[in-house]
């Protein structure tokens, strides 16, 4: 069970129609690889974010599969073209079944 997980997203408040904006996301997560052992020699179970998605007004923008070699607090940055005003919906999927969500609204102007 991952603790202290907190998603953070940075999206510009507004953009011109058709403009490509840069979106930055960061989620605090320990990303335990499953390869390490504790002091007693027992394997520490894998606990990572295994998938990240971003949708804009219901349309998928990016869908990422994350692997165990990705380090703590994964940071994902990408560009998205904004055709109209609307909402970006972000989702991070945890190994333990939790889904962390965040939404940001962007205006045209």
């Amino acid at each position: 069970m991952a603790s202290g997980v907190k998603p953070r997203v940075k999206v510009p408040k507004s953009a011109a129609a058709g403009e490509a904006v840069t979106i930055k996301t960061l989620i605090s997560h320990k990303m335990e690889s499953g390869q390490r052992k504790d002091s007693d020699g027992n394997a520490i179970p894998r606990s990572i974010i295994n998938r990240f998605t971003c949708d804009f007004n219901g349309q998928n923008v990016i869908d990422v599969t994350l692997e165990p070699a990705i380090s703590t607090n994964p940071y994902i940055q990408f560009d998205a073209t904004v055709p109209e005003a609307g909402d970006f919906a972000f989702k991070w999927f945890d190994d333990d079944g939790s889904v962390y969500e965040d939404t940001k609204t962007i205006e045209i102007g």
């Binding site: 907190k6 953070r8 940075k10 930055k24 960061l26 605090s28 607090n73």
Partner: peptide
């Protein structure tokens, strides 16, 4: 947002 120290501040 780019400053990794802010995660700890949170």
């Amino acid at each position: 947002f780019d400053n990794p120290g802010m995660v700890f501040v949170d």
